[in-house]
Amino acid sequence: MSEVARFQRLYEANFTPLLGYALRRVSSPEDAADAVGETFLVAWRRAEQVPEGDEARLWLYGVCRRVLANHNRGNTRRTRLGARLRATLAEQTIPDPAGDVALSVTVRAALARLRPADRELLQLSSWEHLEPREIAVVLGVSARSARTRLSRARQRLRTELDGNDPREAGHVLHDRAAAPPPQSRLAPEEER
């Protein structure tokens, strides 16, 4: 008899009793079906170890018992891990980014109302993290002039944000997240 034919006979003779064995030991039919499937997979892989006759069913029960034990241990580990994760998450403070959206929109609008020169100074300082002396090199002015212009630009931004949350000026002055999206280049025919 071929290996396939022998396995088919083993399956047909033992599927129903093995499924009943598993169903009586787990809470869901799906888990029982999975256990039986894995048991027969082991039987296929270890066909030379499966005894003949009635002993085959006992051997399959033993394999299924170990499969179910592994299943239960896995469930216990998952349950414990889930409990630990829930406890950890309960202790964590997760910031709500929704507040930053409104803040960013307000700051961007205020920046857009500034003169381009002021906007450039603030962006070089806050978004590029350049010091006044470095800004001076970029703009081709003295360090003293850059410092003065930057101070005035910050004051103009505060004025634009007047009446809003005072954190907003600090947000744009120190947060790269407020950086505008990259500008797209004009198509060649638009540049003319």
Score class of each variant (00 low, 15 high):
Ala33Asn: 10
Ala33His: 09
Asp34Cys: 01
Asp34Gly: 06
Ala35Gly: 00
Val36Glu: 12
Val36Ile: 01
Val36Met: 10
Val36Pro: 08
Gly37Val: 07
Glu38Thr: 09
Glu38Pro: 08
Thr39Lys: 08
Thr39Ser: 05
Val42Ser: 09
Val42Thr: 14
Val42Glu: 06
Ala43Thr: 06
Ala47Pro: 03
Ala47His: 11
Glu48Ile: 13
Val50Trp: 15
Pro51Ala: 06
Glu52Trp: 03
Gly53Val: 13
Gly53Arg: 00
Glu55His: 01
Ala56Thr: 05
Ala56Met: 00
Arg57Met: 10
Leu60Trp: 03
Leu60Pro: 02
Gly62Asn: 10
Val63Phe: 11
Arg66Tyr: 08
Val67Ser: 02
Leu68Arg: 00
Leu68His: 05
Leu68Ile: 03
Asn70Tyr: 08
Asn70Gln: 12
Asn70Arg: 14
Arg73Gly: 07
Asn75Asp: 11
Thr76Phe: 14
Arg80Pro: 09
Arg80Cys: 12
Leu81Pro: 12
Leu81Phe: 10
Leu81Glu: 14
Gly82Met: 14
Ala83Leu: 14
Ala83Phe: 15
Ala83Ser: 11
Ala83Cys: 10
Ala83His: 13
Arg86Pro: 00
Ala87Tyr: 09
Thr88Lys: 15
Ala90Met: 01
Ala90Gly: 03
Gln92Trp: 15
Thr93Asn: 03
Thr93Lys: 03
Ile94Cys: 08
Ile94Tyr: 06
Pro97Asn: 12
Pro97Met: 06
Pro97His: 13
Asp100Lys: 13
Val101Met: 07
Val101Asn: 13
Ala102Pro: 13
Ser104Gln: 07
Ser104Pro: 05
Val105Glu: 10
Val105Trp: 08
Thr106Ile: 09
Thr106His: 15
Ala109Pro: 06
Ala110Gln: 09
Leu111Trp: 15
Arg113Gly: 08
Arg113Lys: 11
Leu114Ala: 03
Arg115Thr: 05
Pro116Phe: 04
Arg119Asp: 01
Glu120Ile: 02
Leu121Glu: 09
Leu121Gln: 11
Ser125Arg: 10
Ser125Cys: 08
Trp127Glu: 12
Glu128Trp: 12
Leu130Thr: 02
Leu130Asp: 02
Leu130Ala: 01
Leu130Cys: 03
Leu130Pro: 01
Arg133Ser: 13
Glu134Phe: 15
Ile135Gln: 04
Ala136Gln: 03
Val137Cys: 00
Val138Ser: 04
Leu139Phe: 01
Leu139Asn: 02
Val141Lys: 08
Val141Asn: 07
Val141His: 09
Ser142Met: 08
Ala143Ile: 10
Ser145Asn: 07
Ser145Arg: 06
Ser145Thr: 05
Ala146Val: 03
Arg147Gln: 12
Arg147Val: 00
Thr148Phe: 15
Thr148Cys: 10
Arg149Gly: 04
Leu150Trp: 01
Leu150Gly: 12
Arg154Ser: 05
